[in-house]
Design a protein around this nucleic acid. Structure first.
Lengths: 212, 212
DNA sequence: CGACTTCTTGACCAGTCGGTCTAGAACGCC
DNA sequence: GGCGTTCTAGACCGACTGGTCAAGAAGTCG
């Protein structure tokens, strides 16, 4: 009963996500959100309580979409290394195809808000853990498939690749495709041979790998 | 002639840098800057024209300090891989030792402003190029010293390591030391054996390195 | 000393911030 | 068609934004 919503919440959240992603949290005013969504400020507050709440919903939406894209990319056929290389390239290509360089909303939120707000920090952390989990699973699959060395520590490499991705999305704001592609090639090379995981990292590399 | 400055510009810029670093550009108001520096708003504007101008000066200062620290770290004795590992760990340790997680001011500025402001983007890009140059030099030295393979592409690996660092400083906002250390260990492992730089990256790894 | 200059300060400014509220529109229900 | 409810829209709010300015303080110079 009562008057029904004049708009689809999901559409509004998506447009708000876009605005927050483009301008950051602090630099997106209620007036801008109203303009971006086509909904008057009053209605926005009636539906989402506060700017903060709307942002939280937008962030969740971003995470869902990103996870879906990541899952698709990591489910593609091919060797682990080629799959991950293609996935990283696709994300970089996406960033560079945008009219404005805006990075990754989760990372941007970490930078802008996580340092001051423990709740946001927890949320961001949870969202950052997801690609690590997905990469871990893909690398473990690679080990089962035999295209990844048994002594590759799946979780450690996944963390490393997620870190590389975080870096790439910052670098994509100011650098060009060739540089970013070179970085990706260097990064995925860890899947060729595992990094040393010993306690004393100063020891020399093992005399030869299993091919020797 | 005329009344002399009541304060040291450099001290004020340093404190402003701290405020911008902690809160971001948009979230640092003239009132906060006045409080952080101990200088009345009017004097601040008299000396630095605008918030924007003061920020630019603070950013330059940050870059100078960072470069000096980086130079020191990369000038330390030891093998290239150990030197770089130690340098990355030191930066991570610094980030984690701070009362607030605030990342890297240059990267934060890339995220917050570079997407919308080409001039800031150029400045940030120049600042990001510096650690790449320093790393390139250190890796080339390693090649001369013989502790880095001749087929390591110094510049490519330097870009990769700078990207890793960019990632680390975002990850240091939400992750803990063990995870970050593992990431560093994975990253510096590229110096053990060069990434493939061939056109077709899908080719299998060479049968054995020079130790085999 | 007085003249001149540049500094410091807090009052002041228009504009915007995040948010509230009121008037009334648009339904379901009886 | 009334009634109750929930919606919409935009006027409105105090606080604060980035920035200016006038009044006067603190120097140099002749």
């Amino acid at each position: 009963m009562g008057r029904p919503r004049n708009f689809d919440d999901d559409v509004v959240i998506e447009r708000a996500m876009d605005a927050f992603w483009t301008h950051g949290y602090a630099n997106t005013s209620p007036a801008q959100l109203s303009e971006a969504t086509g909904i008057a400020k009053g209605s926005l507050y009636n539906a989402f309580s506060s700017k903060r709440e709307l942002f939280a919903r937008a962030l969740v939406r971003y995470d869902q979409q990103s996870s879906a894209i990541a899952a698709d990319l990591l489910a593609r056929p091919g060797s682990t290394i080629e799959c991950i290389r293609f996935a990283l390239r696709s994300i970089v290509d996406f960033d560079l195809s945008q009219p404005l360089r805006r990075g990754c909303l989760v990372a941007n939120t970490a930078v802008e808000l996580a340092g001051h707000d423990p709740e946001i920090a927890r949320t961001v952390r949870r969202m950052q853990d997801r690609p690590i989990g997905a990469l871990t699973a893909r690398i473990e699959q690679g080990r089962r498939d035999g295209d990844v060395d048994d002594d590759v520590h799946a979780r450690a490499v996944a963390e490393f690749l997620a870190n590389t991705l975080a870096g790439l999305r910052v670098m994509a704001i100011t650098y060009d495709a060739p540089t970013l592609y070179r970085i990706i090639d260097s990064a995925v090379a860890v899947l060729r041979r595992p990094p040393s995981l010993r306690a004393d990292p100063a020891d020399p590399p093992p005399p030869a790998d299993r091919a020797g």
